[in-house]
Amino acid sequence: MKPAAFDYFRPASLSDALALLAKYKDDCKILAGGQSLVPAMNFRLARPAILIDINDIAELDYVHADDRGLHIGALTRHAAFHRRVVDGPLGALFSAVARHIAHYPIRQRGTFAGSLAHADPASEWCLLATTLDATVVAKSARGERAIAIGDFFNGTFSTDLEPDELLAEVHLPPMGQGWRTGFYEFSRRAGDFALGMALAALRIEAGVVREARLGVGGVSDRAIRLRKLEERLVGGAASQEMIDTIAREAWASVSPIGDIHATPEYRRDLVATAVKRALTEAAA
């Protein structure tokens, strides 16, 4: 299990990286954390001719918050979220979710943006980004464009990024103090990818849900935002009865995939459970 040969570049600046991308396009892959890419290369499932290692590009290593929300540079590692990167519910949610991502050593290397670019449907960050209206900033030698997360994932391991584009930043809108969140994931072992998971965020005022975000992951070829159920939640109380209703409708609305780890029927059961538990946590 040794990787096929490749050429290697480690540019020191973003502009150098983008120039290399422009030059090699489909022949090259970006190496950030490498925690998904390198296993695929060791199995020779991925055989890029050229790797562009962005780990020396200091200008991509940042995470900061401003009144527009949270900005996460391409080199921000999962472990950066062990501590709260922003005050309030968003930072707390990031910390809680980060602890479900693989294991401690993987989190030291793997990056948030890399998870999105890799587009594994069972990825926690893909679910979080999908549910919380993230925007992806893609940069290339041609310029820069913002991609709404709903337009970003094309399917399993497939995104809207062009061959010469680098996922440079992920932006999340701010989440005020009125928001509460819940996350539930079921996996076989600690650190495994989710067989089913859900993320919920509710803004509740005087017992009434004013805004809601609800997404599920590990179910199909990408994370799914359950917008209709969000609409059902808004305007009422996040009661046990309402939560059960939403879980039932989530169960009915998804058409999960089956694989060796879980049949469609089982995944559907997990989705309902995950939605119920994530909402219960958010409503608590």
Partner: peptide, 19 residues
Amino acid sequence: ATPQRIREQLRRAGVATHG
């Protein structure tokens, strides 16, 4: 006795997750 196999028996016994 994987979670899936246990859950399958429970489903057959009428224990739903979406109630």
